[in-house]
């Protein structure tokens, strides 16, 4: 899933470890999220949104990701 996590984190001036400490996960999880290799749980997404002060919809590009997924199913 496409995310704006890296940009939002840099805008906030946080390191990956600092963000990880704020949302109670390991820095490896933050790296995986930024590399778009892992989709977070709803709670983690909410925590990240609060920590970075960015709406969830914007942080995880939910509209764009939904449209992409919709298209994938419509093409079936």
């Amino acid at each position: 899933m496409k995310t704006n996590l890296r940009q939002a984190r840099k805008d906030k001036g946080l390191t990956q470890q600092q963000l990880a400490d704020r949302v109670y996960v390991t820095s490896r999880t933050i790296i995986a999220l930024e590399k778009e290799e892992y989709n977070p749980s709803l709670m983690l997404a909410y925590r990240l949104s609060l920590a970075l002060e960015v709406p969830m919809e914007e942080l995880f590009d939910l509209r764009e990701n939904k449209e992409k997924e919709d298209k994938k199913y419509e093409d079936l």
């Binding site: 990880a20 109670y24 996960v25 390991t26 490896r28 999880t29 995986a32 892992y38 977070p40 749980s41 983690l44």
Partner: peptide, 11 residues
């Protein structure tokens, strides 16, 4: 505790 409960690690 964080390492143990990390959702990605569990998966």
């Amino acid at each position: 505790m964080i390492e143990e409960n990390d959702e990605r690690e569990k998966l």
